[in-house]
């Protein structure tokens, strides 16, 4: 069974990351604000950054130890990693990109083939295209397929669904979840999205101000937003009678139509958490959705518990 343990300190310029945690098989979320060290954490595990001191162990094998002076190079760490930014090789077509890591594997390491992942992510039509010919979402799917075809012992995902539309994102998340079960894979998944977090029953690693050593349950984390303003920040927008729309979300007590492509849902408001600056509302629909609104906006909408709410979302980031 795939697992990872780490306890290290890493410095980049003035920023220090102190991390101490462990994860087992399944999808494990890492959550925190931008610039607090989430990507730095994964880059240390991948070997792109060398920690100052500490230890990283994957499947009982030490890949970094300052005491034992072990530092396994990235190409020998057997890690699949999807980075936040586009990192497809521009000179290779989609098929060559997906097959790139697979050709370095021994027969014993090959559990899933490039064509398996090509089918999972539904990118068979794109195989002859070059990255410059792909949309942001397609690039993200190819990057995911390529990293899974590498057959790593653990999978690191840094906001992998950022450029993918809501419906595709849901399908891809389910595929990742299934693969982690089938391949007994430990997945470390960085996200900003409350919707993604709401899918897990596992504890979530909360990264804050360079500290990555505190795990919280989903419910605790959602309450923990008390002094946080980063969840679904909605401050600027436009009111039309009793509805409110911003660049990312539209919410109303009455049903409405929208010309843009996006995701509609409606449901009843199950709870309202009102804090000093913002209000978090939980809407029960096919599942639970969370939307945070500025207090002024929330009071103008006159929403209450058990009220029906109609929503339209442009980006999955907001859910």
């Amino acid at each position: 069974m795939s697992n990872i343990n780490f306890n290290f300190i890493s410095n980049i310029g003035d920023f220090t990351l102190k991390s101490n945690s462990n994860f087992s098989q399944g999808v494990n979320f890492i959550w925190g604000r931008s610039g607090n060290g989430k990507s730095t954490l994964l880059n240390n595990i991948a070997g792109f950054i060398t920690p100052e001191e500490g230890e990283i162990i994957i499947n009982e094998q030490i890949i970094y130890s300052s005491i034992k002076k072990i530092n396994v190079p990235p190409n020998k760490r057997s890690i699949s990693y999807v980075q936040q930014e586009d990192s497809l090789f521009p000179y290779m077509n989609v098929l060559d990109n997906v097959e790139f890591g697979y050709k370095f594997l021994d027969e014993s390491q090959k559990k899933i083939t490039p064509y398996d992942v090509i089918d999972i992510f539904e990118i068979r039509d794109l195989l002859s295209l070059y990255p410059s010919q792909l949309s942001g979402g397609q690039k993200q799917k190819v990057a995911l397929a390529r990293s899974l075809a590498r057959n790593g012992q653990i999978l690191l995902l840094d906001e992998p669904l950022n450029s993918i539309d809501f419906i595709s994102g849901k399908k891809i998340y389910k595929a990742i979840e299934k693969l982690s079960e089938d391949l007994k894979l430990c997945v470390l998944y960085i996200t900003h999205s409350i919707d993604e977090i709401s899918r897990t029953n596992k504890e979530i690693l909360y990264v804050n101000d360079g500290n990555a050593n505190e795990k919280k349950t989903k419910d605790k984390l959602l309450r923990f937003w008390d002094d946080e303003t980063f969840i679904n920040e909605v401050h600027d927008g436009e009111f039309t009678e009793k509805s409110f729309s911003s660049k990312s979300v539209m919410i109303s007590k009455e049903s409405f139509t929208h010309n843009d492509i996006g995701f509609y849902f409606s449901g009843s408001i199950k709870s309202i958490l009102k804090k000093s600056k913002s209000t978090l509302i939980k809407i029960e629909s096919d599942k639970d959705y969370f939307i945070s609104l500025d207090n002024d906006i929330f009071s103008k909408l006159e929403l209450g518990v058990n009220d029906k709410a109609f929503c339209f979302v442009y980006k999955n980031l907001f859910l």
Partner: peptide, 10 residues
């Protein structure tokens, strides 16, 4: 790109 290639086993 170099980091990506390396993590893919190159």
């Amino acid at each position: 790109m170099i980091n990506t290639a390396k993590i893919l086993g190159s």
